[in-house]
């Protein structure tokens, strides 16, 4: 497995799993308009995942994009633990997405300057969509934070609950560093400062309190996950696993 393949796969996995989570909202949204908006975001995430998987498949040369998405086990998935967290209530989902959207915005901005032309092109395309996602989740955070007492409490609780999954976003391992030195990868650790500024700004507008620094979960890059991921995969991969000879 080349480093570039694994690097691409990590990006694809986070997009796919967040897309999968967002698709669970279909027919469950708080309004019809919001149902449509969440399906849109989900579709964007699947589109992004598809782009990165296609590239990974091309680099690998033996597996198709669908095989990468539907035939790997839990320990072979490299997504951020943040995106696999349960949807919870609408506020939980918006907080989770917001924390990840800010990261994605900064990450794709940098990745679009990558020396790898395909990654750079995929990043530029994703960035356009991520800007909309970020506006969507930020606006909801502000509305819910500044809405009623109940809504403020709900999003504040979600923020406390999910904060521990944000540390992982900025980690760098040997693979990242190797590709960073080749001008291909993004320096995740360098995104932290800007991420803090953007997050703090929105939290102030939303009348929310930034959680105290807590224990930070880690493991996604090594294929270590929370218990959520196994259930996501068993549902998502069911048909491909149950009928391995079938084409769909």
């Amino acid at each position: 497995m080349s480093s570039l393949f694994t690097y691409t796969l990590r990006i694809a996995d986070s997009s796919l799993i967040l897309g999968q989570r967002m698709s669970e909202w279909c027919s469950n949204g708080p309004t019809l308009e919001e149902d449509i908006a969440m399906s849109n975001i989900s579709l964007d995430m699947f589109g992004q995942a598809n782009g990165f998987y296609q590239y990974a498949a091309q680099l690998d040369g033996t597996k198709s994009a669908d095989e990468l998405a539907f035939r790997r086990n839990e320990r072979e998935f490299f997504n951020h633990q943040l995106v696999e967290q349960e949807n919870g209530n609408f506020g939980t989902t918006m907080v989770r997405n917001f924390l990840h959207d800010v990261f994605n915005f900064l990450f794709y901005t940098e990745l679009s300057k990558s020396k790898d032309e395909t990654l750079s092109a995929l990043a530029s395309k994703s960035l356009k969509e991520v800007k909309y996602h970020l506006r969507h989740s930020s606006n909801w955070l502000i509305r819910l934070g500044g809405g009623t007492e109940e809504s403020n409490t709900k999003v504040q609780d979600a923020l406390e609950e999910l904060w521990m999954y944000t540390g992982e976003l900025f980690e760098m391992d040997n693979l990242d560093t190797e590709l960073l030195n080749n001008g291909i990868a993004v320096d995740n650790s360098a995104l932290k400062l800007e991420w803090d500024i953007m997050v703090n700004k929105t939290l102030v507008k939303a009348k929310l309190t930034r959680p105290e620094e807590v224990y930070m979960a880690t493991g996604g890059k090594k294929g270590l996950h929370t218990e959520c991921l196994g259930f996501i995969l068993s549902e998502m991969q069911f048909l491909q696993r149950a009928y391995p000879d079938a084409k769909w």
């Binding site: 698709s23 669970e24 279909c26 449509i36 399906s39 669908d66 539907f70 549902e235 998502m236 769909w248």
Partner: peptide, 20 residues
């Protein structure tokens, strides 16, 4: 959530979104 390919997933979700 159980659609068997990335393409099938996107087509089905887009369809249900159209219904909305």
């Amino acid at each position: 959530t159980r659609a068997p390919s990335l393409r099938a997933k996107m087509i089905l979700l887009a369809k249900v979104q159209d219904e909305a």
